[in-house]
Design a protein around this nucleic acid. Sequence first.
DNA 1: GTTGGCACTCACCTGCTCTGAGTGCCAATA
DNA 2: TATTGGCACTCAGAGCAGGTGAGTGCCAAC
Lengths: 339, 339
Amino acid sequence: MVSERGLDVLKAIVHDYVASREPVGSKTIVERHAFGVSAATIRNDMALLEEEELIVAPHTSSGRVPTDKGYRLFVDQLADRRPLSSAQRLAIEQFLGESVDLDDVLSRTVRLLSQLTNQVALVQYPSFTNASVRHVELVTLAPSRLLAVLITDSGRVEQRIVETVTAVDPSDVERVKTAIGDATVGRSIADAAAALESLPDGLDVPLRQLARFVADAVIGQLGHYRQDRLVLAGSANLARTEDDFRSIFPVLEALEQQVVLLRLFGEMQSDAFGVSARIGRENAAYGLSETSLVVSDYTTAPGETARLGVLGPTRMDYSSNMAAVRAVARYLTRLLGES
Amino acid sequence: MVSERGLDVLKAIVHDYVASREPVGSKTIVERHAFGVSAATIRNDMALLEEEELIVAPHTSSGRVPTDKGYRLFVDQLADRRPLSSAQRLAIEQFLGESVDLDDVLSRTVRLLSQLTNQVALVQYPSFTNASVRHVELVTLAPSRLLAVLITDSGRVEQRIVETVTAVDPSDVERVKTAIGDATVGRSIADAAAALESLPDGLDVPLRQLARFVADAVIGQLGHYRQDRLVLAGSANLARTEDDFRSIFPVLEALEQQVVLLRLFGEMQSDAFGVSARIGRENAAYGLSETSLVVSDYTTAPGETARLGVLGPTRMDYSSNMAAVRAVARYLTRLLGES
DNA sequence: GTTGGCACTCACCTGCTCTGAGTGCCAATA
DNA sequence: TATTGGCACTCAGAGCAGGTGAGTGCCAAC
């Protein structure tokens, strides 16, 4: 069993190792932290911690380094949950407050988060499955090319080009637009998609083909509300933080394969404090076994959440990263919940 | 003066160095290329090339490496302009042909280009300054929050949230929408912005404030047509190609600071073949002195061009990268020029 | 349970030699 | 005059030896 002081020693090791990037020895610990005991005592504690596989020595005569299990214990029980500085809070409010639309909010959020944490920041687009259709617009770009624009009450705008086989008559376009609007406006995403499926069959024959094309396009746009997207920023931080450049290659690759990250996001469960972490080898299945992810939910509407977080080397400052992720998620919830 | 064969030697050095990543010696050259002369002769040529600062020896007793000046000469005079394989051409057509809208086209383009070249790919959004306003839509999201949507005949859609001080009357919204539509639809971006400036003054007092808010928002959207944006893909290739990881940090940073890249894009001039390169220290002002950029224009409408290209280490395969950039730019011109 | 002491380990630094790829130069050759 | 084989020279990099020091494990004493 690990003693009370033993846990404090683990905490000290995590802190010092994150700060110095070098294995931590018993002497360093007594020098930097006021334990009031000698180095030999610390050594005994460290031997116990090593037995529990919470720390490990890279080679026989070196200091210790936390294991993934050690980080996990640290995150779950030991990490300080200290709030951000008021200057940081102010920065969040000011920077995000200037946003002009949803895209802008999220792009600002992700840049902000990467600057606060010095890590790669990720923000998932809200799914808005509870949203309902506010407006459908159909614009003629060329004789046989239309642009379908879908607007929801969540303020999201989707566009899609519709190619038709033959040139279309403007009045037909108008009638199809009205029909589609009648069938969808005010309905939820799911209901609207269902209504559109059968819509063309109820129309006069001359309109059917056009209506089919447009309805399919709009259904495709509605489908986007299930598919998620990520925005990210700060990948340069990887090259700064990481010491070995070969290790950043799989990470950069994962960042481009958003699917992987979305699956990871999906699997994570927030704890009572609204923040959760996935550490090192817990991500091995995704080729990210030396990488940790700190994630929090944010809410855009009752019952609708999306996630944001940061990604960095296992050896990261969990305390402050978790605080930053939490604060940004809260502020974002407040900002987007207003509408 | 450098002889005819001297240039062939330079060409061989560039080729071999790009392939092997190691300084190229005289013996290697005679072994791999059928020059029909001895190593000593090649050495004489190399001494001349070194005098002209086209190649350099990293240390006294090693092979030679091209200088930036050497790459420049290679690109301008020696690089083969061989076309892509038909399989590659097919891949371009198939992959891009499936696009559903402008965003999709550009995001597919950039991914494609990064896969073809194994470099970081960049695509600039078209500016569409010649475009004209097709439609303006105003949607009420909340009592004092509207969404303004701007659609142009180039198929681009801009959205922006408008906050008003007080709750707005739906019929007022309708009237403002009509007024703004009348003032802008069918006009060019520049004309529409000018017309909107003075629009509110001509309206009844009760509508003025609302009209001012909305007009400002739409003017802001129109302003986006001057500001450019970049999409990029393949930054993981950096970590693969580069041997020293410290060198990728400034590059990753530049990739996040799109402003820098946009300025670089702006300064480049395409040559007669439609492709241009900026090599190594020519980019020193941007902190990219070990990086080269291969760029081509693509055309979206008569008189309107934007750029795309790839970015990678100075030691890159210029021949095939230039071929790929050129082919993709041509195809994109054809695809976007259709509308 | 804690401590000081002590022998032990091992990564890392330094200085050394050795090797080989590659060069520059030169006199001989076509 | 251009080309060639020969040769001495250079120097990065690999491999080895010895020294240093941070850190450990263990133990007897407190």
